[in-house]
């Protein structure tokens, strides 16, 4: 993970939303994994909003949520979606475009 230098020049704030449906094991894991990735790669310039669809079911349609958990990168644009418990850090980084897709194979 030493090749992230060119991706370290982050100066805008990242706006992330994690969609869950209740406090399930998957959503707890996803939140923990997300927190870790952000701490390591976003230099504190991020916000994470957790949206519980059991509380706000109407938000599922507007934000096009199908799978749970879904992480949505609202800012910077374009919007990106990562589904699952975010256990594969490498793919989370690719999904957030913190790492080019090519390096996925490494």
């Amino acid at each position: 993970m030493s090749d992230t230098s060119e991706w370290d020049t982050i100066d805008e704030t990242w706006d992330l939303c994690l969609y869950v449906a209740g406090q399930t094991a998957k959503s707890v894991t996803a939140f923990a994994n997300l927190k870790k990735v952000c701490e390591e790669h976003l230099n504190g310039k991020y916000t994470i909003q957790v949206i519980d669809l059991l509380v706000n079911p109407q938000l599922a349609r507007g934000d096009q949520i199908v799978a749970i958990p879904t992480l949505v990168r609202k800012l910077p644009e374009p919007i990106r979606k990562i589904i699952g418990d975010l256990s594969d850090t490498e793919r989370v980084l690719v999904g957030l475009q913190l790492r080019p897709a090519k390096s996925q194979a490494e």
Binding site: Y19, A21, K26, T29, A30, N33, L53, L54, P57, A60, R61, I65, V66, A67, I68, P69, T70, R80, K81, I82, I83, G84, D85, L86, S87, D88, R91, V92, V94, G95
Partner: peptide
């Protein structure tokens, strides 16, 4: 991007 376990609860909620 898919990473790890998920379900379709979002669809069910909708």
């Amino acid at each position: 991007e898919e990473t790890g376990e998920f379900d379709l609860e979002g669809l069910f909620v909708r």
